[in-house]
Simulated scan of single mutants.
Amino acid sequence: MNLQNRPIRLPALFAAVVFLLLVFTGKIAVSQTGSPGNTENKKKGSPLHLFIIGNSFSGNAAKYLRELSEEGGHELTIGRAELGGCSLQRHWEIAEAAEANPDNPKGKAYNGKSLKMLLSEGKWDVVTLQQYSMLSGDVDSYRPYAKKLYDYIKKLQPSANIVFHQTWAYRADADGFGQVAQGVLAKSEKEMWEKSRAAYHTIARELGASLIPTGDAFWRISSDSKWGFQKDTGFDYSQPQAPNLPNQNHSLHMGYTWNNNKLGFDSHHANAAGCYLGSLVWYGFLFHESPVRLKFVPEGVADDFAAQLKKTAWTTVQTVGKSSVK
């Protein structure tokens, strides 16, 4: 066909000219990636409203949940009632104080607000609860506070799905582990995981609630011969020299860090990899969707380790029943 002699269709030409003018004037944004099927810009279903009642461990576990949700195309609203080291008993006592006297400052422990005030700020689809990690292996420490909080939340948010966040055990080289009975501490990371897992499952069964199995995912990594953390036995812990640190490859916990020329040790809280694993578990649980395809990885987490964390998170969520709450 002779293109020079091909007739020009004026409507199509006019539309093309208008489109170009809109592009040049900024009225239309053109993707620089050339991928019109980008799922990051697509929202899936209705927004999920999540309210977290917890402490620093819930802050760790949900640290990257927003980034993962945005990439996965899930709209997410998060409310929080978190206090460092806060147990179920303390959360309940705060709520009880506010019920007895709404003006009592003890009942407004969450930045000047009570739990009732925070829970009443919207309609929440999912509300999470967790025990203080030091008490997580002692099932008696959950009673009667878990049920009191469960009933209290149900009264304020009758349609909410209340779930328990199963926290994790401390790192294998910790100088102490959580309580498993009154006056009795776990002797190892494995025992702390086993006892806390049993306690969470017992309470969840009693209340007919589901579990976010973050603690199980941590243990799957920690106990893996290839991916689990191994203590660096060649490091001189008695006379450390700044800024040298022991090899902490594949650690999920903060571990050793230098601060003002002092070597600190935190075997409890999650580092970037641990926070990432926790957020991956929460993502899989909340949206009943594998996080394996997601590309977001926090700075400092190696690609091969990140890939293993994603697979482990989804396998763990699938292993524990009732993984979807939507």
Rank of each mutant, 00 (worst) to 15 (best):
A172W: 09
A172H: 11
D173E: 07
A174R: 01
D175T: 11
G176H: 06
F177R: 10
G178L: 11
Q179L: 08
V180P: 02
V180T: 12
A181C: 03
Q182Y: 06
Q182I: 02
Q182W: 00
G183H: 01
V184E: 08
V184D: 02
L185N: 13
K187S: 14
K187C: 05
S188M: 01
S188A: 08
E189A: 15
E189H: 13
K190T: 14
E191Q: 12
E191G: 08
M192I: 06
M192N: 00
W193M: 09
W193H: 15
E194G: 03
E194D: 14
E194T: 13
K195C: 12
S196K: 06
R197Y: 14
A198Y: 10
A199M: 02
A199Y: 05
A199F: 06
Y200H: 10
H201N: 15
T202A: 10
A204V: 03
A204Y: 01
E206K: 02
E206L: 05
E206V: 02
L207G: 05
G208S: 04
G208M: 03
G208H: 01
S210Q: 14
G215I: 06
G215A: 07
A217P: 04
W219L: 09
R220K: 11
I221Q: 07
S223P: 09
S223K: 04
S223N: 11
D224S: 08
S225K: 06
K226L: 15
K226M: 07
W227I: 10
Q230C: 09
Q230K: 14
K231V: 15
K231G: 09
D232S: 06
T233C: 02
T233M: 04
G234T: 12
F235S: 05
F235W: 10
F235V: 01
D236L: 00
D236C: 01
Y237I: 00
Y237G: 03
Y237H: 05
S238N: 15
